[in-house]
Structure formats: C-alpha cells, structure tokens
C-alpha cells in the first residue's frame, strides 16, 4: 500500500512536483502517464528515498521513511537511465546488486537464474553488457531491480528506446509480475502501455496530477464522445428516430457510449453494411485535459 499526500519538490525556480496525492493498493498496477518533464521520475525518486520532498508525506506499507532499509528491500526499481556496469557480464551485474540486498550463496544463484530467465537473457548471461543490444540492456536493467524479489516495483519508463520485441517481452513480464500479486508503479509517456498494463492511470503534467481513474473511466469522463460512422443496409422509415445525422444511408452518430448505442440500433431492427467506431483514447484524454498532445 502506497499513500502519497500533497508532495512538493522544487529545483531552483522549477517546480517539478506540485502537490500531488495518490494511493496505490496492494497488488494494483498504477500508471503515471505524462510527457517528459511532467514530474514522473522525480516522484519515483522521492518514493524510493533518493530525493527528499520539500513537503508532503509518503507511506509505503505503513513506513513513512523510504530510506529505511526494510522499505528499500521491499522496493524493486528499474531507473529510466540504464544503470548497469558495461564491463561486467549480465550475470555479474545481477549478482552484484543481489549481494547489496543481502543475498548470498545458493539463494543468490537461484535469484540470479530467475532474473535472467525472467528477462530472457539466460543465454547471454556470461557476455559483457557492452556487447548487449539496447533492448537487452533495458531488460537487464529490469532484472537487476527484480533480483531481491521485491513486492513493490517502481518502473520508470522501462521501454524507452527499445525494439518492439523487447518491448513486448517487458510487457509480458510486467503482467506476469503483476499477476504474482506485486504492486506496480509504472511511468510512461506511451498511452498504449498505460492502457495495456495499468489498472488505474494518473494523468500528470507540469508536476500536477490532472486526473486519476481506470482507463475506461478516464476516457468516459475526459475523452469526449465516440463517433460511429455506419452504412445502413436500407434507408430507415422514420429518420427522425435515429440519433445523429443521416445522408442517404450514411449514418454518423456522436455518443458517450458507442457500444450501448450500437446495441440499441440493432435491437430496433437496423442493419448495417459497414460500421466504424472511433473511440476516444488516453491521448485524447490528455489532449482534453492539457490542451497539448503527449509527445509535444
């Protein structure tokens, strides 16, 4: 359980985090969606105890000080910047970080094997990291944060700059870790990642959380209407009973609930030759909330 209340952090004249509050339940996957510079990494660094907030409070599993050893042992972190020793092998990197968390002997070997298996790097375990591709380094970055079997994962843009295969593998592994009951805080500026991986998403910009909810609720509340464009099989007897506008047999409807509207039309005997539904997504939600696109 993570509880954050009214967190502030300034760097000189810049307010990086401007009074954010949120809660993450045990086993929940929580996303921070926002552009670069929104305050996502600063928030994660404060949660991890690397940065001290100017004000506000953080509680992780009941502990208010994230720098406490017990709290840090419960956190697994994949920093946005690759944090690896290139002259060491993949196995040596994981083992080194495992030792820092107190692992040794057989337990350490088991966890190193598990971590390498998790990210699909068992075959390359004895190769130096400098010989890895960008995607492999990203995966190893994730594995180094998992070696000590943490219950809370702080994943700071773990798929930045990697190939689609590695990205899909990371998606799969995050879903696997989540299904094992771990709590996940996932920051990204890719809306498809948030939509796929997160139970709830916080839209963050300029250090402020603009909205927090499930993806469907965010879209419903802030995404605006969905647009249905359909070609009717036959002209309706009474066009005035149809929602939207009709030109010949071409129907265009703007609705808050596209599926309910389609269900209603079919139940009243309307048949369609073609149909296209443009449903709002988190990109639109962000646009509506900030007036800017995610990648602006």
């Amino acid at each position: 359980m993570i509880i954050v209340k009214n967190l502030f952090k300034r760097f000189g004249d810049i307010t990086a985090v401007d009074g954010i509050s949120f809660e993450i339940s045990r086993g929940e996957s929580f996303g921070f969606l926002g552009p670069n510079g929104a305050g996502k990494s600063t928030t994660i660094n404060m949660l991890a105890g690397v940065l001290e907030p100017d004000s506000g409070s953080i509680s992780i599993n009941g502990a208010s000080d994230p720098t406490r050893s017990k709290v840090r042992r419960s956190l697994g972190i994949a920093p946005q910047a690759l944090a690896l020793y290139e002259e060491l092998t993949g196995e040596e990197n994981i083992a080194f970080f495992g030792r820092l968390y107190g692992l040794s002997g057989r337990k350490l070997r088991e966890r190193v094997d598990w971590s390498l298996e998790l990210v699909g790097l068992s075959e390359r375990r004895r190769h130096r990291v400098k010989t890895y591709s960008g995607g492999m380094q990203r995966r190893l970055n994730l594995a180094c944060g998992m070696v000590h079997d943490p219950q809370v994962l702080l994943l700071d843009e773990p798929t930045v700059g990697i190939d689609p295969q590695s990205r899909n593998l990371i998606f799969d592994k995050v879903e696997q870790l989540k299904s094992e009951g771990r709590t996940v805080l996932y920051t990204t500026h890719y809306m498809e990642e948030a939509q796929r991986l997160c139970d709830r998403v916080a839209i963050i910009d300029l250090g402020r959380i603009l909205a927090v909810d499930t993806v469907d609720n965010l879209i419903s509340e802030h995404g605006g209407v969905s647009v249905i464009e359909a070609e009717l099989a036959a002209p309706p007897k009474d066009p005035s009973l149809l929602p939207g506008t009709l030109e010949g047999t071409s129907l265009r409807i703007e609705t808050d609930n596209a599926m309910a509207t389609v269900a209603e039309l079919t139940s009243t005997g309307h048949r369609f030759i073609t149909m296209r539904i443009d449903r709002a997504d988190l990109e639109v939600v962000f646009l509506n909330l900030t007036g800017r696109r995610l990648r602006d």
């Binding site: 972190i77 920093p79 910047a81 690896l84 970080f97 968390y101 180094c144 944060g145």
Partner: peptide, 13 residues
C-alpha cells in the same frame, strides 16, 4: 553519469 550511483543509492546502503 551512467546511473549506477542512483541504483546504489536505491539499494539498502
């Protein structure tokens, strides 16, 4: 500069 110091600081050290 390579970020490993951050990871060291994230560890219980």
């Amino acid at each position: 500069t390579r970020g490993t110091l951050l990871r060291l600081r994230l560890a219980p050290l």
